[in-house]
Write a protein that binds this DNA or RNA. Sequence first.
DNA 1: TATGAGCATGTAAACGATTACATGCGGGCT
DNA 2: AGCCCGCATGTAATCGTTTACATGCTCATA
Lengths: 343, 343
Amino acid sequence: MRTEAPTILDVARLAGVSTATVSRTLSSPDRVSEQTRVLVLDAVASTGYVANEMARNLRKKTSNSIGVLAPDLSNPFFSFIIAGIEQICGPRGFGVFVTEIGNTPNAKNKVVNMLASARADGFIVLDGMLDLSLLKARGNLEKRAPIVSACEWPSDETAPSVTVDNVGGSMQAVRHLAAMGHTKIGHITGPKENVLTAARIKGFKAGLESCGLTYDDSLIIEGDFSLDSGRLAAEKWLSMSDRPTAMFCASDREAFGFISRLAKAGVRVPEDVSIIGFDDIEVAAFFVPALTTVSQPRIDIGRAATQMLFGLIDGEIAPEDKRPQLDVKLVVRESTAPPSQDA
Amino acid sequence: MRTEAPTILDVARLAGVSTATVSRTLSSPDRVSEQTRVLVLDAVASTGYVANEMARNLRKKTSNSIGVLAPDLSNPFFSFIIAGIEQICGPRGFGVFVTEIGNTPNAKNKVVNMLASARADGFIVLDGMLDLSLLKARGNLEKRAPIVSACEWPSDETAPSVTVDNVGGSMQAVRHLAAMGHTKIGHITGPKENVLTAARIKGFKAGLESCGLTYDDSLIIEGDFSLDSGRLAAEKWLSMSDRPTAMFCASDREAFGFISRLAKAGVRVPEDVSIIGFDDIEVAAFFVPALTTVSQPRIDIGRAATQMLFGLIDGEIAPEDKRPQLDVKLVVRESTAPPSQDA
DNA sequence: TATGAGCATGTAAACGATTACATGCGGGCT
DNA sequence: AGCCCGCATGTAATCGTTTACATGCTCATA
């Protein structure tokens, strides 16, 4: 019962050829003769040989894998994105490394190390907060492994990224509300420093403006995308003297938290308030009421980011293709309705 | 602007020592003199040297990473588990490779290759359907990289796994319902072939029995854990002539789908039916109504599985520790209530 | 019949680390 | 003084591939 893995040398000996021939047979079969090809392939089959990735990678100076840096792996929002990434990587034989970078002080170090240690040929970062500039400082690490941001994007406006039309989506959301007759529309934001937060606020304002409504600071409630921040926002809303008749939430989870808290207070959606979310996570369609929301193509984001990353790795991306923006679409369900008369 | 990574040789030259000394300085600093230590460390700092993982791994015959095999990465259920896995791996400097194995015919091959190619030092498999026996056949691959199952478990009852008390949790669920006065309790199952499905049905029956209730086949509706299967189940329920007053769902998502469909039909939860889920995913507490459910410690599952895997990798697991079963607990919220009088 | 092209294959040098073994040196012991 | 031990370091083998280069063979061409 041998537990040691067979090496290319074992195969070579069994087939009676050199290791070079075995390697060639496996990587470019048409460079060896028919005769030796079957010899080698038989030997491979009978030994169960599979090339050792570490040796191969060392020699070829690759790692055959990419890294995904997420601020918080437990956030289900990322699962579809990661699934999209894997859909592209899998068939290529690329491994997908996931890491949580959180916001610990040594997170930066972790990233620098990953980059520098040649563990990955490229990176997809899902966290706009990560300061990519320190990689430039540190010996131009980006040159070794390209980085593309997805969903969120770094402050450097030229870095490759695949994002979504956040301002357009937000505009659509408030225009939908306005079209239904709402004039007093509030917004629950994301966390203050987040780029998405800013973009969605921008879209919110633009939407208001395009409908002739004026922006009112007192209708903004700060959140952080989480369920619980939605709940907290609901408490603020309940305590308002002159409540907005519709709320645009920067995430579906905020919307759920909001609606949930309101339900406990006997406030009905959409009869008493209309709610719109952002993301269209799976459960949105099955919430009670089914949530009207701005749908992000999360799988596609993952796929597009990965494809771009491969383009960068292979050195074949034109500058103008480096910041694609995917479309979102408003999906209207049951959490929005015209404002009630007595409001 | 050098873009090539510095090697250990660059550091050695700069410090005026041999590569062996550099390596020693980095891996066991107390084996070199104070004097050369600072010399080397300075050189490391000024070159920005980070050891190449591929070379290190090749030499040490490790990969410094583990693989996670999931049936479906887009399923948010796994996100917390993966987060737990990363929490243990990160600090150890281990990489976490995620792969979707799906149920394509070549999935098995994919797994065999991952195992054999020395890409990972061990694996955590989240899919009970994966037939681990083929790894034994193929040259005893398990010997090279241990495998632990999490959540689900393989048919081989001796393989390492960390699971949860599925039958106990299910029992608790139905006992809670029975205690509230329900006598006609139904169950929406998971997919037929799944081990969890069987375990939860077993617990369901045991719970019934322990309360003196009798199991009735016609009260079982087949689902597959998904939101949509919950919706479908609701339609079956609506069409029943003599409806159960309470349903135990094999997953929270089934429960959401179920409740959501019922709401559209004007059926209220818990007034008209009581519902219990399983999993306690994040949104459960914020659903309307907040879902009573059996809570699984998903992060802990990930952590425990990883710790066990490391134990196996280091060869220090006693046989009796190989199949720990974590506790679940019923968390009672608002989707359950005593049956209404007119039922 | 040389000659060269082209093919199939072998030989051996990388890739960049770790580590067994060798070396030299200083100091404590008898 | 002689011996040995242990410390700090260096030398070089090794991990398992890929691939540049060398080799030898066959065949078409001049």
